[in-house]
């Protein structure tokens, strides 16, 4: 960026000031976020419906509360209610849909102009996700308030420490999910029917992430198996932090960092190899 700015100055246009990379980054980020927020605001009705479509944890809470299995686990109704509400909230802010959008952009040829811009297309998707979360926030707060209205005995405020840790874990979990989706989206360069894979990844997401049952309820062998996958980090770990359950905090954050670093590398490699193959749809 710097060199191009200098170049244009050499051309004799006095108004272009050289920007330092950090400054430039801030400007791009602000412009992207503002435009994506405006775009997403148009879709607020859909965002509300998407938020409501994540009500699986509440259905599961109803079954768990009524079943004696919860008590056998050492989780009373209060603890269960808190866990599943936390799972709902965490899930709301870790959803990613890069695959769907990217496949559509690639198939419709919108990817080509995006590749010409001096900005990686994934930054645009990231901004769009963040903007959508901002619009989701009041809806989620409303649903949580309704939840406490129905089950007032479940109300709790996490300690400031736990709240901060949960927030950090949720942001990292979102990044992890985003990168998982990005790595699969890159497969669009090799096949034009990647959407079907989305269905496959949703299955372990439902059963292993902790959305349908706290991982503590799993048989030990299955739990160990699940913990070798990134899925419990996406919902169970941040949710337990928020709900005040006992967790190995250091291990969770380490696992998040390792997965994110690994996937970042994978996405970079896949992207480089993929763009070389890209022939633009219809060309």
């Amino acid at each position: 960026m710097r060199s191009s700015a200098k170049g244009s100055r050499a051309d004799g246009s006095p108004r272009v000031r050289p920007l330092r990379p950090l400054q430039h980054g801030f400007r791009v980020a602000r412009a992207l976020l503002a435009s994506q927020y405006a775009l997403m605001l148009e879709f607020r009705a859909e965002v509300l419906l998407w938020a409501l479509a994540g009500l699986v944890p509440f259905v599961m809470l109803a079954v768990w509360i009524e079943s004696p299995a919860g008590a056998a686990l050492g989780m009373g109704p209060t603890q269960l209610a808190r866990y599943f509400l936390a799972a709902f909230v965490v899930r709301q802010f870790t959803v990613a849909w890069v695959m769907v959008v990217f496949e559509e952009d690639a198939l419709q040829g919108r990817l080509s102009p995006m590749l010409l811009q001096p900005l990686h297309p994934f930054w645009r998707y990231l901004a769009s996700h963040v903007a959508e979360q901002a619009i989701r926030l009041p809806f989620v707060a409303l649903i949580a308030a309704l939840f406490f209205l129905v089950l007032p005995w479940a109300f709790w405020l996490p300690t400031p420490q736990r709240a901060l840790l949960a927030l950090a874990a949720t942001i990292l979990a979102f990044l992890l999910n985003f990168l998982i989706q990005c790595s699969m989206a890159c497969l669009c360069f090799w096949s034009d029917r990647v959407n079907a894979l989305e269905r496959l990844i949703f299955i372990p997401m439902l059963f292993l992430s902790g959305m349908a049952a706290p991982l503590e309820a799993f048989p030990p062998a299955l739990r160990r198996l699940a913990e070798w996958t990134p899925f419990p980090l996406l919902v169970h770990f941040p949710a337990q932090l928020l709900a005040g359950g006992e967790m190995n905090i250091a291990a969770g954050f380490t696992a998040l960092a390792v997965w994110i670093a690994g996937l970042l590398l994978l996405v970079t490699l896949l992207w480089r190899a993929g763009v070389k193959r890209y022939g633009a749809m219809g060309a």
Binding site: E46, L49, W50, V59, A62, E66
Partner: peptide, 26 residues
Amino acid sequence: FVKTWNAIEVLRAALSAGRYPISAYP
């Protein structure tokens, strides 16, 4: 409302309660 198609996903999520017998619920 053209946009209500997403309501189908809400319906599907709610109907997932059908995985379990109705007496399993409060």
